[in-house]
């Protein structure tokens, strides 16, 4: 090799790890246990001209946790992911990833990241194998290790049969799985997944869920965005719901459901009888299209009241879900 024109600048200088307040070390001690903070963001803001994509949000992600970003289209999820991934500079505020500032130590941070971007960007000049192998080179992984790791990862996402197939001959879901494999070539400590399961069939989605759980069990920290709320509820230890660049709420899926909706939902067909009867009984409800929704701690009581007094047509009870929280907080109006 020859390097006449270039000089290494940051390659060999090890960063000093400082925490959010500038102290060396990035450990927090809470209740005697050591909790390592992987991402810490304070008043993070991102603007594109007049558009405020991320509006002064603060959050922190701890080691080993799966942290979700939910929100309607244009909420600012991808913008946030890109700031964490050191590919888009913040406009203002502070952020530390592994205790380092993305503005100052992008290469050091990215060395330990695995990123699944929202938009698939596999290299069409290479096969599946070639994509993973070439990507490994960018992380300074020696060829023999890269070769072995590539084989393992193709198996991990069940694409070993497609090893020598060109990217353009893969289905959308296979591409998505390959991108997940690509994000893992450098054994990352932090995974940033922007809608990892978009366009996947149920089988592939379950496969990815299982893989993510496995990665979490190995100590990985995962930050993900998704529009599938069942997926978020299943995977995330904690999540935030964003809208218009702001964080509306933060918490575990179970807690959020309990806090913002309740235990169960009773849905009953909307009739004049039902409406006046519920108002008369002082039971809070919400009208959604042709249905009336009642959030409650005890569906039995509500259903009994309905049948005893309101002569309902169709009644359905189900557990409250994250989707109810999401719709309640972000409204039912479609985003442009």
């Amino acid at each position: 090799m020859f390097y006449p024109l270039l000089t290494g600048t940051l390659d060999y200088c090890l960063p000093q790890v400082r925490d959010f307040y500038g102290n060396i070390s990035n450990h927090w001690f809470i209740g005697g246990a050591q909790i390592q903070v992987i991402i810490e963001a304070q008043d993070l803001k991102k603007t594109f001209g007049d558009i405020i994509a991320v509006d002064s949000i603060s959050f922190s992600v701890k080691k080993g946790e799966v942290f979700g970003f939910l929100g309607p289209n244009g909420a600012g999820k991808t913008s946030t992911m890109k700031i964490i991934a050191c590919v888009s500079p913040r406009t203002s505020g502070a952020i530390r990833v592994f205790g380092m500032d993305p503005d100052n130590f992008p290469a050091e941070i990215k060395m330990r990241l695995g990123v699944v971007p929202q938009e698939t960007n596999l290299d069409p000049d290479f096969t599946c194998y070639g994509n993973l192998f070439t990507y490994s080179r960018y992380f300074d992984i020696p060829p023999d290790i890269a070769h072995q790791r590539t084989q393992e990862l193709l198996e991990f996402v069940q694409l070993q049969e497609k090893k020598d197939v060109a990217i353009e001959k893969l289905s959308g879901g296979m591409k998505r799985r390959l991108i997940l494999a690509r994000a893992l070539v450098n054994n990352p400590d932090l995974l940033i997944l922007d809608e990892p399961t978009i366009g996947l069939d149920p089988q592939a989605r379950h496969l990815i869920w299982e893989r993510l759980k496995l990665l979490q069990a190995q100590g990985n920290t995962i930050v993900l965005t998704t529009h599938y709320l069942d997926e978020a509820a299943r995977l995330c230890d904690r999540l935030v719901i964003m809208d218009n660049g702001k964080i509306l709420v933060e918490g575990s899926p179970v807690d959020l459901v309990k806090q913002y909706v309740g235990e169960e939902i009773v849905e009953v067909e909307k009739t004049e009888d039902v409406l006046s009867c519920l108002s008369g009984k002082n039971i809070p409800f919400e009208v959604i299209g042709e249905y009336v929704q009642i959030a409650t701690g005890s569906s039995r009581d509500v259903v009994r009241t309905l049948f005893d007094h309101c002569s309902p047509h169709k009644v359905l009870t189900r557990p409250a879900t994250l989707e109810d929280v999401f719709l309640k907080l972000t409204g039912r109006k479609l985003r442009e």
């Binding site: 590919v87 290469a107 990215k110 990241l113 990123v115 596999l122 069409p124 960018y138 300074d140 450098n186």
Partner: peptide, 14 residues
């Protein structure tokens, strides 16, 4: 078209 640069800057490459 290939978004290759986007993919590359997600690695230690600047």
């Amino acid at each position: 078209y290939q978004k290759s640069f986007d993919a590359m800057i997600a690695t230690p490459l600047s």
